[in-house]
């Protein structure tokens, strides 16, 4: 069968279909290489889902066990800052998506600009996070030896109603607010670590994009980094309502 022998012959002259220098020899076409890359990236993201999933599960369980502590602890978080940060992160993701488009249509200048905008908004997110963490530090709401339960045992009086703004907790339950803050710092901290790693990769990608590495048909690094960046976005889309908005009207 001449057809069979043509397939199994290890003849290298067959490879006229190779167009880009980044094309690896063991892939038959560019598309196959690209799909294999996307597949691998998604497998990595699945391990990330499991990783964050463990944290989300811990949150789910302790929220149900110590709901009375989670509500006033959650209401210590700054909703306007959290909402603004959500918008900032979505904006960063939007520019990342535009960056993938710019690489696809081979516009080097636009790609570099979009990657820089992605970086700026990502850094802005971390800046807001710093302001929020600093406030927790000053109020002794970081779990550990210097954690203060006073605000949960004796909630500040609301000036409008003349009553406490939150339901006062007994000392035992007030101690459980530490679990909320432990999860808050664990989850947002792990999310922030992913952002810091992403920002480092972005700077590397910007330098390579400036050299024109990704605007001559080889889009895979931009595309796969985009997948990572959007995944980090998605984690925050869940963190924001789950941590900041548990119960905004506890006394109604």
């Amino acid at each position: 069968m001449p057809h069979e022998s043509a397939i199994h012959e290890p003849a290298h002259h067959e490879h006229e279909h190779v167009f880009i220098p980044q094309h690896r020899h063991h892939f038959e076409t560019e598309e196959q290489q690209r799909e294999a890359g996307s597949f691998g990236m998604w497998l990595f993201l699945l391990t990330e889902i499991m990783f964050f999933g463990g944290l989300f599960f811990a949150y789910l369980l302790y929220r149900n066990w110590y709901y009375d502590a989670f509500v006033p602890a959650s209401n210590q978080l700054n909703v306007p800052l959290g909402a603004a940060n959500t918008a900032i992160l979505i904006t960063s993701g939007f520019f990342m998506a535009l960056g993938v488009w710019a690489a696809e249509v081979r516009k080097k200048g636009l790609l570099v600009i979009f990657l820089i905008l992605t970086t700026i908004f990502g850094a802005a997110f971390l800046g807001v996070k710093y302001v929020e963490y600093k406030e927790k530090w000053e109020k002794h709401h970081i779990p550990g030896a210097s954690f203060s339960i006073s605000e949960f045992v004796n909630p500040p009086i609301d000036a409008k109603t003349g009553k406490p703004g939150q339901k006062p907790l007994n000392v035992d339950m007030a101690q459980k607010t530490q679990i909320f803050f432990f999860l808050y710092f664990g989850m947002t901290g792990m999310h922030a670590l992913h952002m810091i790693i992403g920002l480092g990769l972005l700077i590397w990608l910007i330098a390579r994009a400036q050299r024109g590495d990704f605007t001559s048909g080889y889009v895979a690094p931009i595309e796969n980094f985009g997948l990572y960046w959007h995944f980090v976005d998605i984690v925050w889309l869940f963190l924001f309502p789950l941590l900041y908005l548990i119960n905004r009207h506890p006394l109604q």
């Binding site: 993701g93 995944f231 924001f240």
Partner: peptide, 16 residues
Amino acid sequence: LGIACTKAVIVILFFM
């Protein structure tokens, strides 16, 4: 959670 899941699906389908 409904809104968060909807947003996540939109990101996965189009941004990703």
